[in-house]
């Protein structure tokens, strides 16, 4: 008993000592909604390159956005690196981001960044239809997501209605098609008994395991599954017309206005849109690089050929609550 208490105490002191030893001028605190498995190697490259230490807090993008808005002026974070425009928009709407300098913003096509310059897009994630070609031919997939509310798709289309990417798509649909059409679509998916999942990766796994033939997901989960097991049967289908269901959502980063080390923070965000980091996103995370001239994975259609809907990504966060309400109203939540 005493031994255990002593052990716990020693461990605490050790951990406290460790956590306070890093810090100082040459370091930044990063809140990353992008997972450690994906981006830690990239962060290590940055530290190697610049000597700036990065203390990272990893968690879900929306949880970190909530944390930052709760922290307000006391936030220890210098940079917020998030998976989706809605989380970035949440922080931007709260007025907690510092405007980024032009030399960072100008590297990426403006449609992938905040229109006010609060955050910059760092890589692109396309909404796609993942399907099992042994069950359904690509030609049978409807022109847009609207076709999936037809009763012939009953019980066949996997969705992740509580997932951030799905909500970003719903928010986009609200902006492009209006609330009524969006609710009609969501209700159609619900009355079709579309199987719901907590997030994208189990949908891709369910398609690969033959549990469902079709799912609405982000493009890279299948590529990763194929990298682990090349025999997986699934394939990605990109919508050929401009629709919310074919949205290319950027992951992105912004600098907190309360940051006490803005120079280092800017160097970090600039690094995320450097050729080196963009190559990393293309090859390691199977996302679209957003900086022109950097090639995406050869399995993917070029980003310019995806007819992504014409929306201001900064507005997604403003309709996020409405999107969640509609999803709940449709009975999918």
């Amino acid at each position: 008993m005493k031994r255990i208490l002593a052990l716990g105490l020693a461990a605490t002191l050790l951990a406290t000592a460790c956590s306070s030893s890093s810090g100082g001028a040459g370091s930044i605190t990063l809140y990353s909604g992008r997972s450690e498995d994906l981006v830690q190697p990239l962060i290590d490259q940055f530290t190697e390159l610049t000597g700036i230490a990065v203390r990272v807090k990893y968690a879900g993008s929306s949880d970190l956005a909530a944390t930052i808005t709760e922290e307000g002026d006391n936030s220890p974070a210098d940079v917020f690196f998030a998976q989706d425009p809605a989380s970035l928009g949440t922080v931007a709407l709260a007025g907690l981001f510092e405007e980024l300098p032009d030399d960072i913003l100008s590297v990426v096509p403006s449609r992938f960044s905040d229109s006010q310059g609060a955050w910059v897009g760092t890589s692109g994630r396309a909404r796609v239809v993942v399907y099992d070609p042994s069950v359904i031919a690509a030609s049978e997939i409807p022109e847009t997501e609207d076709g999936f509310i037809d009763p012939s798709w009953e019980g066949l289309v996997g969705i992740a209605p509580t997932n951030g990417s799905f909500l970003a798509f719903v928010a986009t649909k609200i902006l492009t098609d209006g609330e009524d059409a969006t609710l009609t679509w969501l209700e159609g998916m619900e009355s079709n008994g579309s199987p719901t999942y907590p997030k994208n990766s189990p949908i891709v796994a369910a398609v690969n395991d033959g549990q469902i033939p079709v799912g609405l997901v982000n493009h890279y989960y299948l590529l990763r599954a194929l990298a682990e097991n090349p025999d997986e049967p699934g394939a990605n289908h990109f919508f050929e017309v401009s629709t919310a269901g074919g949205l290319v959502m950027p992951a992105g980063a912004g600098i907190l206005a309360t940051s006490d080390n803005k120079d280092a923070a800017q160097r970090f965000v600039a690094f995320l849109v450097s050729d080196e980091a963009q190559e990393f996103f293309a090859t390691e995370t199977f996302e679209y690089p957003l900086v022109p001239g950097i090639e995406a994975n050869p399995l993917l259609p070029p980003i310019d050929t995806i007819p992504t809907p014409d929306v201001d990504l900064s507005e997604l966060a403003t309709v996020l609550d409405v999107a969640t309400d509609l999803v709940a109203q449709a009975g999918l939540l």
């Binding site: 951990a15 890093s22 997972s35 450690e36 498995d37 994906l38 990893y58 970190l64 990766s201």
Partner: peptide, 21 residues
């Protein structure tokens, strides 16, 4: 949400890896 930045546990590792497939 509450750990010091840089602190990680096995549960966090499982979540992070499984989340990315």
């Amino acid at each position: 949400l509450l750990s010091p930045p840089g602190f990680t546990t096995l549960a966090v590792r499982i979540w992070s890896a499984a989340d990315e497939g």
